[in-house]
Amino acid sequence: LVRYRTISKIPQITLNFVDLKGDPFLASPTSDREIIAPKIKERTHNVTEKVTQVLSLGADVLPEYKLQAPRIHRWTILHYSPFKAVWDWLILLLVIYTAVFTPYSAAFLLKETEEGPPATECGYACQPLAVVDLIVDIMFIVDILINFRTTYVNANEEVVSHPGRIAVHYFKGWFLIDMVAAIPFDLLIFGSGSEELIGLLKTARLLRLVRVARKLDRYSEYGAAVLFLLMCTFALIAHWLACIWYAIGNMEQPHMDSRIGWLHNLGDQIGKPYNSSGLGGPSIKDKYVTALYFTFSSLTSVGFGNVSPNTNSEKIFSICVMLIGSLMYASIFGNVSAIIQRLYSGTARYHTQMLRVREFIRFHQIPNPLRQRLEEYFQHAWSYTNGIDMNAVLKGFPECLQADICLHLNRSLLQHCKPFRGATKGCLRALAMKFKTTHAPPGDTLVHAGDLLTALYFISRGSIEILRGDVVVAILGKNDIFGEPLNLYARPGKSNGDVRALTYCDLHKIHR
């Protein structure tokens, strides 16, 4: 019993810090008490220290592992850092350059016999395009090294910054494609005289377009951006097909006994025919423009016929181009109408809503002055909100995010209106959640004399007048207030005048 009563005193000691020596009952000389009392004092002292730490809000209350900052290894790049964003855009520009100039170089340097010394005699450094290609190869190699040090988000939505895990993730992902696209074939085969082989191998750079397509997928929600990307894709495919079309004609031209190829026909049409040795002929500019003209006309199913396939190889390629053109029509131009419709969806919704308003007016036989006010209010409210119901949009977000959005939407009023000066951010967040926005066209009466005042109004834009009878008592403008002081009276009061809008007004109100 003594032991039980001794232990039962522990909660009292913990909360009230009572010393055991003052209790005459606990001072009985028993061996059990002498053993338990020192333990009680020690526990009391420890609990006292913990309570003191909690009340003082000291940093040592938290466990040590929670006080440590997340460790980022040296030379690790955050995937959302500004440097990584700028670097990704730079790589994107280099990939676009590669997609345009690599097929052009591979096709127009394929057994090209233009006048001038061969590239091997001039030297590697004197070729501007080769120098640019070398810079692109170096940048792609540097990009691989950067990807080995860039964080990523795993399946659990955690940012991984450990170098080993980053390397394994990159090896399992895009490393092989990036490595093949970054191989400097110019340096590996330079001086061997195989410019045709170098041009063909350099087309491996186009593998990076797969990554670019995935990154550009984030802009699919913007109709104008999608339309622009589709047109660029169409032009890029036409450019690639033009390079292939020229390569076919250029390879067949020296081996044909009869002059029936499209390059021969082009030379005869523009007065620059090929001679018996295969030299001469149109310039590279004429060849490229004509090839691009043929691919565009074939892809769009126009086909004027002034550039036509004559050999079997050219006919087979033309059939493939027609098939590609039909697929592009289905996948690209078939979506253009939907994209344009999405661009004008706001206008369509406006006309639909206006039609419903006019049908309501016609069905209920609203008189002319009231009908005009109804239409003007709808037009003004639509121009202010673009038909978007803010309350319906915010309803799907958590309250903390709703408060931040409301604070942002009402920031101008909260910053410049005098009653809100000096208020804490928590108070402003709470008030912003209570605001209701209303609009009024010129001549609209917001409050009639004798109406119950259940709200306090803040003028965000425009001006109003307060009338008693036919006498203008006051004219209020931006950041002015009218209405009933909230919670100042037990019952809502009545208006002693009319409140009429002089201009288009936007008002925020808080109800009782």
Rank of each mutant, 00 (worst) to 15 (best):
L428P: 01
L266V: 01
H380W: 15
S220C: 13
F101H: 04
K434Q: 04
W245K: 01
L229Y: 05
M231K: 01
G281W: 01
L188R: 14
K395L: 12
Y288R: 01
F363A: 11
K84G: 01
R71M: 11
L109S: 15
L145C: 08
A225M: 04
I183C: 05
I96A: 07
R349E: 04
L394S: 01
N154L: 05
A242W: 01
M328P: 01
W89P: 01
T150M: 01
L229E: 01
A213T: 13
L197M: 04
P184V: 01
E121Q: 11
V168A: 09
A107M: 03
L134Q: 03
F296S: 01
V168E: 05
M390S: 05
G116C: 05
R205D: 01
V160H: 01
T295D: 01
S220R: 05
R421T: 13
R208C: 12
M231W: 14
I177K: 01
S258D: 06
H73P: 14
W262S: 03
W89L: 01
T203E: 01
N156P: 04
V357P: 02
E115Q: 06
S301Q: 10
I332E: 03
N386K: 04
G271P: 03
I405V: 08
I248H: 01
G223T: 09
V447C: 06
C232M: 11
G249H: 01
N391W: 05
E114N: 06
A423R: 01
L401I: 12
D286R: 01
H79I: 01
A449V: 13
A242P: 01
W87T: 01
T203I: 11
L229H: 03
W75R: 04
R342V: 10
L134I: 08
V393T: 05
I237Y: 01
I366H: 01
I237F: 05
W262M: 01
T424I: 01
R356Q: 03
T300V: 01
A225D: 01
E112D: 11
C232F: 09
A348F: 14
L263A: 01
A430F: 09
P369E: 09
S81I: 01
D88G: 01
T76S: 04
I146V: 05
L409V: 08
Q372S: 13
Q379N: 04
